[in-house]
Amino acid sequence: MLGLAKYIVSFSLIIFFINSSVASDRKFNLGQIATKEEITGWDIDVRPDGLGAPIGSGTALIGEEIYTEQCAACHGDFGEGADRWPALVGGEGSLASHDPEKTTGSYWPYASTIYDYIYRAMPYGVAQSLSYDETYEIVAYLLYMNDIIEEDFVLSNTNIGQIEMPNRDGFLLPDPRPDIINTQGNPCMKNCQVSTKIIGRARDIDVTPEDDNS
């Protein structure tokens, strides 16, 4: 018995060295072990607590320059949004109004998300072209424009998880649906009390595209 156990141990050790993983744990033996280098290249996300934030720092002062160069054409000099491109600044106090304006300042609950998103997706069409420092600088500029930090505040990987965003408590969890009056699968079938008056027609609003090449 003892001999057999020893045999099994040394056998799996051999497999371990061949595959550089414990092959016996793997059901199908498909795929490759990822190297540190491969993971570092692709693992770019940053979590609210700052986990994943790459080493770097920047201030709004420098951020303004890069923003003007690389972002303002679409998002406006002051983040107000040019044409139909999204606004990034403003909208404070508008969320409960008829026309809420959701921006990084008025709506986004975490500063980490601004860093994560800009680094991965902006400038639009040239993704992942900013350096870590440039990204911190631009995020600092947006936070400054939204009156969340001072102009000379040094934003970095060590404090991005601690920035207090104005709408941090603006979100409700968990999902309360189904949230409508529960008729338990037996809704009214006959002579139901509903208003059937027409109060609006899409035709009158007239925003429906028309096929014009016929």
Partner: peptide, 28 residues
């Protein structure tokens, strides 16, 4: 991971703003 990542798509977008100004999150 052990926590949600709070990406742009699940904070800025795909959250459901109510009349109160609060928004539902993770309504999948």
């Amino acid at each position: 991971g052990d926590k949600p990542y709070m990406t742009r798509e699940e904070t800025s977008k795909y959250t459901d703003l109510l009349a109160s100004g609060k928004a539902r999150m993770f309504t999948w």
